[in-house]
């Protein structure tokens, strides 16, 4: 009962933290899309490059987030951004690389060679082929990668409260340090609901972005 009173009484604060939380994730994943999708497309040209890039990205993602935050402090302190918003965004960008690069790479390299040949045969240039054939076909898979990145990084951002980045994790960190179950549960529930809600919204976006001709295949 206590908890519900606390929640309703602090709706404004919850909203504020949620907004901050979402802004970290979306700014970072937005930047990650701009870097990771081109990388994913580029490495389809070379198996060796793909191996190195994917290995590096998958190693990156195994490093626990709090350890990554910690490792960034000495690196970013010299320019005055050891803690706060910036390292959180950078960590999310790094974590987003693997799911987006890997899915882009897999999707583009799995495009039916016959379609590619047909596109070349009709006289499309490399960029026309990418834009008109390969990327549209790959979008459902790339979107799945973006969704994975966003959902995972909502969790990472919750931990970023410990390096002063703000967001819904603040409730959890305060709840723990003040032994206050009201803040603890508020933080846990709100961050969970945020993750679930954004996952659903992105699923909807993915459906809207997917060419109607592909709907049968991409529905899983």
């Amino acid at each position: 009962m206590d908890i519900i009173w606390f929640m309703t009484g602090n709706l404004g604060l919850i909203g504020e933290h949620a907004l901050r939380h979402v802004s970290i994730v979306f700014v970072a994943v937005g930047i990650a899309v701009v870097t990771a999708v081109p990388i994913g497309i580029a490495i389809t040209q070379s198996k060796a490059a793909a191996d190195v890039v994917l290995y590096f990205a998958s190693m990156m993602i195994t490093v626990p987030s709090i350890a990554l935050f910690g490792l960034m402090i000495p690196l970013l302190s010299p320019i005055g951004y050891g803690i706060g918003y910036v390292p959180a965004v950078i960590a999310v960008i790094l974590y987003s690389q693997l799911p987006i690069i890997r899915n882009t790479y897999t999707a583009i390299s799995n495009v039916d060679p016959a379609l590619r040949e047909a596109a070349v045969g009709m006289g499309m240039s490399t960029f026309q082929r990418l834009r008109q054939v390969e990327i549209p076909l790959a979008i459902p898979v790339i979107m799945t990668g973006i969704r994975t990145a966003v959902v995972m990084n909502i969790g990472v951002t919750a931990i970023a409260a410990y390096i002063g980045a703000g967001g819904l994790g603040t409730f959890i960190s305060r709840g723990i340090s003040q032994s206050d179950p009201r803040q603890l549960v508020t933080g846990a529930v709100s961050v969970s609901l945020l993750a679930i809600a954004i996952d659903l919204i992105l699923l909807l976006v993915q459906k809207l972005l997917t060419s109607k001709g592909l709907v049968e295949e991409s529905r899983q």
Binding site: T62, G70, I73, P74
Partner: peptide
């Protein structure tokens, strides 16, 4: 070590936790 290191702004302490944690994760994987 990591959380205390961050809270106390004690860089070596923080790295003493972060580096083994990262290594453990990579080695496990």
């Amino acid at each position: 070590l990591i959380f205390t290191g961050i809270a106390l702004d004690e860089l070596p302490m923080m790295l003493a936790g972060a580096i083994p944690t990262a290594l453990l994760a990579v080695v496990t994987d």
